[in-house]
Amino acid sequence: MVRYALKRALSLVISLIVASAVIFLVVEVAPGDPASFMLGLNAQPDTLAALRAELGLDVPRLQRYFLWVGGMVQGDFGISYAYRSPVAQMIAERMWVSLPLALYALGLSTAIAFPAGIYAASRRGTLGDTVVMGATQLGVAVPNFWFAMICVLIFAINLRWFSAGGFPGWEKGFWGGVKALTLPAIALALPQGAILARVMRSSLLDMLGEDFIRTARAKGLSRRQTLWRHALRNAMIPVLTIIGLQFSFLLAGAIIIEQVFFLPGLGRLVFQSISARDLIVVESVVMLLVFSVIVVNFAVDLAYAVVDPRLRART
């Protein structure tokens, strides 16, 4: 187990290093100098040089990469070109909207998918199964941001149960924040939940066809008991994979959904930064997103070992 975890941790670190290098390289090849972009065409050479020094653009590339990575490890993401304020602080504020939104949606998606998938698998071929599968087929096809717009139209504009957008901030109370994130989280969660429910169902059905299920039936377990005691845990392995993948979709989805609900999250920050050519912010946000995806995949790898003793043994 320890060996397995260490191995995964090592690959996590390598992934992070390579990912940061890739991001840095891509942004580095960007045409144009941020400093001259900020000062306009008529900038004086000495002001330009001063700004370049202030932004840390005057050091060689390789050194700049290490400064950037080294800074991030210590929580220093550099200074925004456009706002001249620390990037870390800007990201931290936004992160407290985007991350809770993605996690909220992940919770909802799982909460929808598990019962739906288990129900459909246990009643395979019945009307209930057909209805659930039809609904998920539709759910998979719906773009989350469009679904969000429809939700706003129905629940905010017509029924007035929620506000159409905006975020009061956590300091104004926990439940106010949760309420503001509920509609966005539902819009994000439904399509992902539909996918997860389908995976859950097919994974369970695969397991129900396995030899050890027949053995369990021969022991005297009922169909229902074999599903809960024997199929479910084995079926979790592919389901965990998808949950891990979904986190990255939800984080990316959160960035899009924030636009529908005018939420002050990473999405708004990153799109503003793109138009302001505030590349250091873009770079840092992207790195943060990639970092969360890699870390979540690491967590999923560890979860496999909890579910599957065969992985634990390979230590």
């Binding site: 891509v26 942004v27 990255s248 793109i274 992207v286 990639v290 890699i294």
Partner: peptide
């Protein structure tokens, strides 16, 4: 490694650049 970059993130990077 590529799996760690959702297509939105790649699009952000390319667009920014």
């Amino acid at each position: 490694l590529i799996f760690a970059f959702p297509s939105l993130v790649i699009a952000i990077l390319i667009t920014a650049t």
